[in-house]
Design a protein around this nucleic acid. Sequence first.
RNA 1: GUGAGUGUAGCUCAAGGGUAGAGCGCCGGUCUGUGGCACCGGAUGCUGGGGGUUCGAAUCCCCUCACUCACCCCA
Length: 413
Amino acid sequence: MIPGVRGTRDIVPGDVERWQRVEAVARDVCGRYGYRELRTPIIEREELFAKGTGASTDIVQKEMYAFTDKGGERVTLRPEATPGMVRAFVEHALEQSLPVPKLFTIGPMFRYERPQKGRYRQFHQLNVEVFGVADAALDAEVIEMACTFVETLAIQGAELVINSVGCPECRPEFSEALLKALGEDLPKLCGDCQRRAATNPLRIFDCKVAADQPIIDQLPHSVDYLCDGCREHFEAVQRYLRAYEQPFRLSHRLVRGLDYYTRTTFEILASQLGAQNALLGGGRYDGLVKKLGGADRPGIGFAAGLERLVLALPGTDDEVAPDVFVAALGEGAREAAFVLARALRASGLQTLVDYEPRSAKAQLKRANRARARYTVIVGDDELARGEVTVKTMATGEQQSIARDGVVAALSSS
RNA sequence: GUGAGUGUAGCUCAAGGGUAGAGCGCCGGUCUGUGGCACCGGAUGCUGGGGGUUCGAAUCCCCUCACUCACCCCA
């Protein structure tokens, strides 16, 4: 046997129904908020992510499936969707053709990481992006929609966390304040934190090392360093959320890993997932469209991890069961059985037939195992009278029905 | 990339140097054209893979692969 590639998974029948449920809810919710689907390729030029996601991020530095193709082009399997969505938005001038560029996409992403629960090398996301709207009302609507999505899936124990990381105006000031506050304590922090202090000081807030916490708890908060514009924007976002009666927790430690985030950031956490507990995360990225060669347009969006949503989904697996099982008894009845099955399917009934000439007992057993509602027994005896026998599996009750009336009888039941 | 744990039948798990097992599931019979319940019978494993120690390895040792948890990262 040749095993599947590490970090990839098959979604088998019995599991796939849960995925379909998540995807159906995603499409339904997106549709109600006015989003249109945009499907972009899984491979993109490597530079799209170096520029978009950010050259300093771990994703770009060590997690991309990047290679040189046969034409000498540097390409990569996409590690996230947003830069591709922005590229397509710009490339097709979607702002001209769509009333409001509200876009969503569902598909696989690839990151070369050590797999663990809730984290895979090929994983799937729902991505939601809106371009060209700077108003805080949209931030709140996007966040509220994300919450509605999770609630509609009946996922328990989800918590919304929000923060503001400022903009290119006020963030440098905050980073400086951070380093200044750290001062002589910096060498006391863990190695990772010291590295973060040099590359992206905000990410010190991500640290989970226990010994570092007393120091980190004393650090200033980004919300206290926002410029007037960012502060008013963030206050407005919170006002709208309260108006929606959407509970949220402010966390000055929510900083997010991608370089492009500005102002509002948010996550929905699920308590039952363990270490990989973010169901969904996103924020505003006002400089990204311009950076990727488009006009100066603001943007906001989020990505939801489908594996994690499926993991957090409450138990009940929806069983897939046929309406009818057609059992053919006797060599002469088989042809009639297949013709009948075709007619039942044409009328919309999910129908199975046995392909082996098994005993009546064996076929009934199969019908039972498949959880068919009805078994239609097509036998030589019945056919001679122009009839078939319909058995209701739940009750065991059965009756003879004219062969040409069985489709009508079953499709109305 | 780092650390720890676990890999035995389709699934959940026993056997800790001496002939690989159970429960569930699957197939068949009792019931020759009638499922579920009961009873009876049957099939299924290169014990993740490779190497070593030993008269003999699922069991001990080494390597490798995969999975799980945590770090890291993030959806």
